[in-house]
Nucleic acid binder design. Structure first.
Lengths: 218, 218
DNA sequence: AACAAGTGGACGGATACCCTCCATTTGTAG
DNA sequence: CTACAAATGGAGGGTATCCGTCCACTTGTT
């Protein structure tokens, strides 16, 4: 079964491969999977030649990043499901698996290309299935505990999270820093005045999002 | 003051100009302001020559669309502010000024380029200012009425709306149709189980957002 | 009817990106 | 330490995309 068709990788080559995936993960989360290859190479500190040697085309890089990041999130999800007994807290903690989750959603929800590539990868189908199962049960548990409203599905939860993580750009650095936690909390708590939890971050004013200033897309 | 430097426009030319702006409005809302000029021309049913004759470059088109759409929203906002006495309902109604609002947010929040162009247009500064004033007072009124939590600003409201309107893609047509109202309601109501209003649309399942199928970008 | 205004889309130029190629460097096995 | 294969990076040719002009033709207006 383990027919070693791959001649083992040299030490530095393996290191660079990991760097490339890590860099691509970050860049994909930030800008989506259609950024110039050269930018990914630069972020990884390698030349484009090295990048192409390891990943013959963009799709194969997308696959590698997909497997990496879905795997991470799955591991995290399992850990939380096991550690956290309160279903509401399990759900919120899971949703805050911030940066990896960000990449996952960017690839899974916001990028048609990544969807096309990852959707046809049998390796990933497995992992995705398990992730969805866990999310489903988290949602159901939270609903049975009366903590989560019953008229939503796990897809709703994913879409809302994707929106909130993706949507906040062109704001001051400090707002941006707190945005995911702040808005996730807000979405969960609701905008309606209620004896909810305390929001992290500060209120964003109209001036904060004024068009006069353009903040770097980073 | 009204020195007529512009020789009046021929009837069909004026019609085409309006068509171009309308088409650009729709396309910008959908894909942002960096789509190929030819696509805008096609959507408007004119040739690229006509487009460039009327708008010498992309920025001038962005400005025209910006003025058009900000103006519309401002008018709508004023009408609502006057007609609707309940502050909470005034706010929600305003936020649902769907398609125009969509374009506004796409330009004002999601597109660095549009922000750069519109941010330096003195004509628009006026309109933007008035819009922000109205939104601010809607938010403040709703807060004073105890309907809206006090620890958010109008910027928060705008960002959340932008996220929700922008974020939902790659889902089945029926989900997409209801998404803005559904998620806006959800954001307002809160995810937490509460005796809130009834959600429009249906629960989205995990399968609905499975990556196996890629829904058209539009 | 006559002329200016308007039209569309073909096309040359520019740009951005992809991906290969190879002279050089680096790891590793003996 | 040597020698060789593996790995590197970035220059550069090929390609696709998009911009914006130009002009032979059509349409409105007076």
């Amino acid at each position: 079964m383990s027919t070693d068709t791959t001649p083992p990788l040299r030490a530095d080559a393996r290191r660079n491969r990991d760097r490339i995936i890590a860099a691509a993960r970050a860049v994909f989360a930030e800008q989506g999977p259609e950024v110039p290859m050269e930018e990914i190479a630069r972020a990884a500190g390698v030349g484009t030649g090295t990048l192409y040697r390891r990943f013959p085309d963009r799709d194969s890089l997308i696959r590698a990043v997909g497997q990496d990041v879905f795997g991470r999130v799955l591991v995290e999800a399992r850990a939380i499901a096991e550690r956290e007994t309160d279903p509401w807290r399990a759900l919120t903690e899971f949703l805050l698996t911030a940066s990896d989750m960000h990449t996952v959603l960017r690839l899974a929800v916001h990028s048609p290309r990544a969807r096309a590539v990852l959707g046809t990868d049998p390796e990933l189908a497995q992992v995705r299935g398990q992730m969805l199962t866990i999310l489903d049960s988290m949602v159901r548990d939270a609903q049975e505990a009366g903590a989560l409203r019953p008229d939503v599905g796990s897809g709703d939860v994913a879409l809302l999270l994707a929106s909130v993580l993706h949507g906040v750009r062109n704001v001051p650095e400090d707002v941006r820093r707190d945005a995911p936690a702040r808005y996730l909390t807000l979405v969960l708590d609701g905008l309606r005045a209620s004896p909810g939890s305390t929001l992290p971050g500060r209120p964003v004013t109209g001036a904060d999002i004024s068009m006069a200033r353009v903040y770097p897309a980073e």
